[in-house]
Design a binder for these strands. Structure first.
Lengths: 160, 160
DNA sequence: GAAAATCCCATGGTATCCCATGAAATCCCG
DNA sequence: CGGGATTTCATGGGATACCATGGGATTTTC
């Protein structure tokens, strides 16, 4: 197993802990990152998370900018400054920081959404709404493209 | 852990001491620099700080300029001349010099912002303002760069 | 010799570790 | 093929360690 697949919903306990889905833990362990790298998404109320592989994609997008350039500063303040490395306890749980919970509107339950090299963390209700919206939008795209373009719309994200 | 990640806000005590966030201390210790290298930022009311790696980055970005050129002189005067090396006490605290505090407008609280190879020190209120600005600018950058930076941390296909 | 800087210890709140439990999925052997 | 035994996994709770902060004591500096 080397990709985050499928979605799961787990509960936060009184101390704010959530179990990371077991299959995700397997992915993280082969990835070999100690902890969970979490980054609030820029324009959704969700959190992107993953291990080394995910972290590298962030790092490489920063690498295109000259250190001390204004763009670099802006990017690193948001991408790195807002990120957090959560510790994973012996039972595979993490506690989300207040900042992350606030950003995603999380209170007592979270939904994990597998996205290959990373996964997202959502407040469950917001996620079902988002998924519905995404489906509609996908239909629109389909219509626009029409039946001529066989494999177009979802140009599967090639990885590095 | 080898990068400064996430943000923390700590208080200055009566003697002007602040705790460096524990995770930053871990980074500094593997970096192997005894103390904290601090440099006022050029165009913001903040302070850049870090260890060896940070210092090297300053050096190499200076190397881009012709030695003895006016630009080089100006840069080295500020980048190096205004820098300070703060001592870290046994409990992981530093005291900011008056000059640094004045430059950043710091009185009784500071926010540490992780930026990978370095971190910044801000007056908390100023920082939240700057962060908001940074996010907006980042949205612009994303659009400008477009789909080239596929995996730039967050949601692909941003079209709100 | 006084002010300032440094060291050392105390403390309270929080996060982390470790073990327990129950439910569900898996396995295994008849 | 089936049904009981075992493992996996999410969740809960108590004990412990860590960390930010405060303050006294000792050393340094001019």
């Amino acid at each position: 197993m080397d990709e985050f697949v499928s979605t799961f919903t787990n509960r936060l306990d009184a101390k704010g802990r959530v179990s990371i889905p077991a299959s995700y833990r397997a992915v993280l362990s082969v990835d070999g990152f100690d902890g969970l790298y979490c980054c609030p998404t820029l324009d959704r109320q969700a959190v992107d998370a993953g291990g080394n592989r995910f972290r590298q994609t962030i790092g490489s997008s920063l690498a295109n900018f000259e250190p001390f350039s204004e763009d670099h500063e802006l990017l690193s303040t948001t991408l790195i400054g807002e990120s957090e490395i959560l510790k994973i306890d012996g039972d595979g749980r993490v506690v989300l920081s207040d900042a992350l919970k606030a950003h995603a509107g999380i209170t007592d339950k979270v939904t994990f959404v597998g996205q290959g090299y990373k996964f997202q963390i959502w407040e469950p209700d917001r996620f079902v709404a988002y998924r519905a919206e995404a489906k509609n939008r996908l239909r629109d795209i389909r219509k626009r493209l029409g039946p001529t373009h066989r494999a177009a719309g979802a140009s599967q994200r090639t990885e590095d």
